[in-house]
């Protein structure tokens, strides 16, 4: 299945802004970040299709992941 991954801030370095990759059925965000060599501590905000996501949820074909490192402001 195809998963689109949107990366932000420092996570873009060496990876680009948007990556689309194929994963086996029922893959999880944890597998996605491992594939992209992003460490768990660098994942501060994880959204799946714009909703709060978790590293171990099951993904579906065409899901969109948004991943942010620890950032903030106001």
């Amino acid at each position: 299945m195809d998963i689109q991954i949107k990366l932000f801030a420092t996570l873009r370095e060496g990876r680009g802004k948007i990556v689309t990759k194929e994963f086996p059925p029922a893959a999880t965000p944890r597998q996605v970040i491992e594939t992209l060599q992003i460490s768990e501590e660098d994942v501060a905000i994880l959204l799946v299709n714009g909703q709060d996501g978790s590293l171990d949820q099951e993904l579906h074909d065409q899901d969109v992941l948004s991943i942010f490192p620890p950032v903030g402001g106001g």
Binding site: A9, F68, V71, G72, G74
Partner: peptide, 20 residues
């Protein structure tokens, strides 16, 4: 946030977070 996010991007880094 205070050690890396704010120094590197300032507060503007929120644009994509809030929009997403």
């Amino acid at each position: 946030v205070t050690g890396e996010g704010l120094p590197t991007y300032g507060t503007a880094v929120l644009v994509n977070i809030i929009n997403e």
